[in-house]
Design a protein around this nucleic acid. Structure first.
Lengths: 234, 234
DNA sequence: ACACACACGTGATTC
DNA sequence: TGAATCACGTGTGTG
C-alpha cells in the first residue's frame, strides 16, 4: 500500500519547524562569521517551504483529477495531462453538438422562430445558408422521410403549388424545411399541417423559369439525399 | 526574463551522460568493494532519470494549459488546477444549457419532430409534460407574442375552432406550441401558416365541457404569462 | 538484494 | 544583498 506519499505531508510538516535550530553550528568550519551558517539555515528553511508548497500543489492537483490510481508524483501529472486532454475533446464534441443544435434553430438569425417560417423567409434573405450539407454529421435523429404524395402544379401566373404528404417521424418538419431552404425557392406561403401519422406540407412558390417536373425531381432528390447519408444510428 | 526553466531541459540533458564516469572513486573510502560506488552511480543516474521524467511531465502539463504566465514549477501546477476547475465549471454550465435546449425539443420524447406536431400529438399522449413552467429559465430569446386576433367558436358537435393571428418574432411558434401544450387540450388538427410579418395559427380541438370564453381567456393568459417573466434580455 | 520513489541539504543562478 | 528557484547527489524507506 502506498505509504510514503500519504505520509509525506506529515513527515514534511513534522520535520518542518524542528531542524533549523539544531542546524546552528553544523557546517560552520568554513567561515569565521556566523553569517554563512545563518544564510544556509535560511536557505534550508526556504527550500523546505518551497518543497512543501510544491507537494501541496501536487496534492491539490490530485484532488481535482478523478480516477487516480498511481500515486506517483509523475503519474499524478500524467493523469492530469490526460484528463485535461479528455476535457478538451469533450469540450470540442459538446461545442460541435451545440453548434449543430443551434444551427437548426438560429441559422437565419431573424426567424429562428420555427422551421416553416424559415422556409418562407428564405425568399427574402439569403444570408449564411450553408445549405449544401443538409445532413447532420452527428448521425443522430436520422429518420428517413417517406414521401407518400407529391404534387407540383401551376395554379396561376407564375405561382406553383407544391403539395407534399409524408410520414411524420422525428424531425421530419425540420428536415423538410431544410430541403426547401436548400432549394432556394421563392416561397410565398408555407403551411404545414400535422395529422396523427401524416404530415401535410403545402407551399406556394413564385416560379421564375423552372420546369414543373424538374422542380418535382429536385424536391425528391433533395429528400432522398437527406435520407441517405446516415441509415439509422439509434 | 525566465532563463532557468527554459534551459533546464538542455542543462539536464547535457549533464545527463557525463558525470557518472567521473564519479568512480569519489566517496569510495567507506567500503573496499567497488559495488557501492557502482550502486551509487546507478542510483544517481536513476534519480536523474526520475527528475527528467518529472520535468518532462511538468513541461507537457504546461503545454496543455493555456495562458501560462509564471513558469514556476509550483505555478504551473496551480494554473493547471485552476484550469481544470474552470473546465469543470464550463462543463456544468454547458450541460445545464444543453439540458434546457433538449428539454424544449425532446420533452414529449416521441414527437420532437417539430412544434405544431407536438401540439397536435398532445391529444393522445400525456407523458411527462411539466408544462407548468413554460417560460425558459435561461432568459434567452424572450420576445413577446403580440396577439393581433383571437377567435374561439364552436364549429360542430364538440369541435372548437381556435383562430389566432399574431406577430412573427423569434421562437413565436415554439412558444405558441408550448402554450397550447400547457393547456392540455384535445387537439384534432393544428395548422400554422407563415406570412411575411404575421403568423396564423388554426387548430381544431375537441372540447369536453369547456366554455368558449374561459378557453379564450386561458389562451390569452397563457400567452401573456409567457411574455411576462423576462422582458427582453438582448 | 534490488529497484523505485521520496525528502533532504547544498551550491549555483537569476532577478 | 537577499529572496526565490532550480538541479544535484545522497540517505532512507518500501515493495
Amino acid at each position: 500500500m502506498e505509504n510514503y506519499w500519504d505520509n509525506i505531508h506529515q513527515i514534511d510538516d513534522y520535520s518542518w519547524g524542528g531542524l533549523e535550530e539544531t542546524f546552528s553550528g553544523y557546517y560552520d568550519s568554513s567561515s569565521p562569521d556566523g553569517t554563512q551558517s545563518a544564510a544556509a539555515s535560511k536557505n534550508i528553511v526556504s527550500e523546505r517551504n518551497r518543497r512543501k508548497k510544491l507537494n501541496d500543489r501536487l496534492f491539490a492537483l490530485r484532488a481535482v483529477v478523478p480516477n487516480i490510481s498511481k500515486m506517483d508524483k509523475a503519474s499524478i501529472i500524467k493523469d492530469a495531462i490526460d484528463y485535461i486532454q479528455t476535457l478538451h475533446e469533450q469540450e470540442q464534441m459538446i461545442k460541435l453538438e451545440l453548434d449543430e443544435l443551434e444551427s437548426r434553430k438560429m441559422e437565419p438569425e431573424t426567424l429562428d422562430m420555427c422551421q416553416e417560417t424559415e422556409v418562407f423567409m428564405s425568399m427574402e434573405r439569403s444570408k449564411r445558408i450553408r445549405s449544401d450539407q443538409v445532413f447532420d454529421p452527428s448521425g443522430s435523429w436520422m429518420y428517413p422521410i417517406e414521401i407518400l404524395e407529391l404534387n407540383v402544379e401551376y395554379v396561376g401566373e407564375k405561382i406553383v403549388l407544391v403539395n407534399l404528404k409524408c410520414s411524420k417521424r422525428r424531425d421530419t418538419i425540420v428536415k423538410l424545411c431544410e430541403v426547401f431552404e436548400s432549394l432556394k425557392l421563392n416561397i410565398v406561403t408555407a403551411t404545414i399541417s400535422a395529422f396523427p401519422e401524416r404530415l401535410l406540407n403545402t407551399l406556394f412558390i413564385q416560379a421564375e423559369k423552372e420546369d414543373i417536373d424538374t422542380l418535382k425531381m429536385q424536391i425528391e432528390t433533395a429528400i432522398s439525399a437527406l435520407n441517405h447519408p446516415q441509415p439509422i444510428t439509434m
